[in-house]
């Protein structure tokens, strides 16, 4: 150890002794000077720690919310895929049934085309602002004189719009699809646009039937009427007490209301109660989730088959 360091140590030890015996007034002044000089740093450290804690809490909340949102989206996708799979299985069963019938039908009758034909057409859902402008006639620069005004029924309705009307050969009651799932139907058809109601709207009515999944495949069950209630769930009415209903049963359109005879998916039974004095089951159905930012749908059109008209004439 060098002389300088030894000298320094002695000086400091003497200072320490001096500070120990210093008067209280001197000690207080020294203390207050030191604490005042530390105050800016202390405030900065506390503020930094507080910001760090707040950012960590916000990050944790955000990541939890985004994870929850992601999980919900994955659940929705899973349900849609499951319903699509079920619809494909039913279509397969239906095609097999048709093939068997055709093989047993006499030759002349088999060549006759169907009276009606159904087809799918894509339609865009008009946003609220565009729909409002459309109803107010702001999007058309020619007025009633040229006969290009939209139908008053469509204009007066408050329901959402799709961008197809009579020009797209739509009809009232045409089903509105998302994939192979029914989400609503056409309410009023205008010249260029049409209004639609969703499954969950209180005005919605549709023929439906239960489909039970068994080990040996799908079994068609009782038929009823699916009604919207203005809430997120629908009610299936007309299921008698002698019919079987189970939670988890799928609800489809009836055979004749599907796509070329193939039933379309509505949703799943989540509640089925039968009271002592009830004449029918009280069945609650969870419909297919509808995206909040719905911008395009498919419309199931049913029209007279011109081939049949030509064959009959």
């Amino acid at each position: 150890m060098s002389t300088a360091s030894g000298f320094m140590a002695c000086v400091l030890l003497l200072v320490s002794v001096g500070m120990y015996f210093a008067p209280d007034g001197v000690k207080d002044r020294v203390r207050s000077t030191v604490t005042d000089s530390l105050r800016p740093g202390q405030m900065a450290v506390r503020q930094t720690a507080k910001s760090f804690r707040e950012n960590m809490a916000a990050w944790a909340t955000k990541s939890t919310r985004s994870q929850t949102r992601e999980i919900d989206q994955l659940h929705d996708q899973l349900r849609l895929e499951q319903s699509r799979q079920a619809a494909l299985q039913i279509q397969l069963a239906r095609l097999t049934d048709m093939q068997l019938r055709e093989m047993s039908t006499p030759e002349p009758l088999r060549s006759l085309p169907r009276l009606t034909s159904s087809s799918l057409i894509d339609a865009a859902v008009l946003g609220e602002a565009v729909a409002e402008s459309w109803r107010a006639g702001k999007l058309l620069n020619r007025g009633d004189a040229n006969g290009v005004r939209e139908s008053s029924l469509v204009v007066q309705s408050r329901h959402p719009l799709v961008d197809l009307g009579r020009d797209g050969e739509l009809s009232p009651e045409d089903a509105l699809l998302l994939g192979r799932c029914v989400i609503g139907k056409i309410e009023r058809v205008g010249r260029w646009t049409s209004t639609f109601i969703l499954l969950t709207d209180s005005e919605y009515r549709g023929r439906a039937q239960l489909v039970h999944q068994t080990e040996s495949g799908f079994v068609f069950g009782a038929k009823g009427i699916l009604k919207g209630q203005g809430t997120s769930k629908c009610r299936l009415e007309g299921i008698g007490t002698s019919d079987a209903v189970a939670i988890g049963d799928a609800v489809y359109t009836t055979n004749r209301d599907g796509l070329q005879g193939t039933p379309l998916y509505y949703g799943r039974v989540i509640e089925a109660t039968l009271g002592v004095d009830d004449k029918e089951w009280k069945v609650l159905v969870d419909p297919v989730p509808i995206p909040r930012d719905l911008d395009s749908v498919q419309v199931l059109r049913t029209a007279i088959n011109t081939e049949r008209l030509a064959a009959g004439s």
Binding site: L12, L13, V15, S16, V17, M19, Y20, A22, R31
Partner: peptide
């Protein structure tokens, strides 16, 4: 505390 103790 007493000044000078920690210094020492």
């Amino acid at each position: 505390d007493r000044l000078g103790v920690q210094l020492g």
